[in-house]
């Protein structure tokens, strides 16, 4: 079985963000980069499926600058067989439709039976790309899964709904699933696997060869939201802070009465 997992490299969300000079994205200097959290679950599920079905072959795909290869190496160390890096220095300017079109164009005649993606990215968060890829390929897709089983060309999955309820859904392959947090426990790459990953195949494709559509939307402006007024920010010695907070709680709430 041929399997594809699509990942994205994103900044650590704890980072101190700055606006880029164009004013349409965040400044990418001085940021720590990592694998999009949702994609870690996608990679883990893809690796588990590869281990389940003998003779499977698992490709990890990532679009972006050269630096995304560092994140791809983690996916290779987790168990992907090869990487395909679609080189694009301005991937962040592309809308979800363009990103999905690039991936669908890459995947269309490669006989993948299953594609895994995260349900959304942590930075842009559109939650569109996975479902769009499946639609472009004419495949069924199941989004936001928190449980996944595969047997004999059929997927049995649980979709997470609001309030902790799950919808039970089945479909036949080829199919695409988008992975929600908590789907599994992503493995930590072991040192031997990290070493092994360095020798795995990492192919590069040019984005121009795969992008055949135009964006349907543009970012006009990016900015920091206005802080809600009234919130008090306290800094300093922890013991002083604790005294100040107790005083505030006595004045403003009834819980210390």
């Amino acid at each position: 079985m041929k399997i594809l997992v699509c990942i994205k490299q994103v900044p650590d969300m704890e980072s101190k963000f700055k606006i880029s000079t164009t004013g349409t994205w965040y400044d990418d200097a001085d940021l720590a980069w990592r694998m999009n959290e949702y994609d870690e679950y996608a990679v883990e599920q893809a690796v588990q499926l590869k281990e389940q079905v003998a003779g499977s072959d698992l490709t990890v795909l990532c679009i972006g600058r050269k630096q995304v290869q560092e994140t791809m190496k983690k996916a290779l160390a987790m168990g992907c067989d090869r990487g395909v890096h679609i080189a694009d220095d301005v991937a962040h300017e592309k809308d979800p439709f363009e990103i999905a079109s690039i991936i669908a164009e890459f995947a269309k005649d490669k006989d993948f039976e299953l594609i895994f993606t995260g349900m959304q990215s942590q930075d842009r968060g559109s939650a569109q790309v996975g479902v769009l890829i499946a639609e472009l390929l004419g495949w069924p897709s199941i989004s936001t899964i928190v449980d996944f089983n595969y047997a004999d060309g059929k997927i049995d999955a649980k979709r997470e709904l609001e309030g902790g309820i799950k919808a039970l859904v089945r479909c036949s392959t080829p199919a695409l699933v988008t992975c929600q947090l908590g789907l599994n426990t992503p493995r930590y790459p072991t040192l031997p696997n990290i070493m092994k990953a360095k020798r795995k195949e990492l192919l590069t494709a040019k984005v121009a060869e795969l992008l055949k559509v135009e964006a349907k939307q543009d970012t006009a402006k990016i900015y920091f939201p206005e802080k809600r007024g009234g919130g008090l920010v306290l800094e300093g010695d922890v013991n002083d802070l604790a005294d100040q907070l107790i005083k505030i709680l006595k004045e403003k709430t009834a819980v210390l009465a």
Partner: peptide, 20 residues
């Protein structure tokens, strides 16, 4: 008239213009 969406766990906001 322009939709606004959150970016990076709501740390930033983005005005997005559709071309269609």
């Amino acid at each position: 008239g322009v939709p606004v969406a959150p970016v990076c766990n709501s740390k930033l906001r983005r005005q997005v213009k559709g071309n269609t």
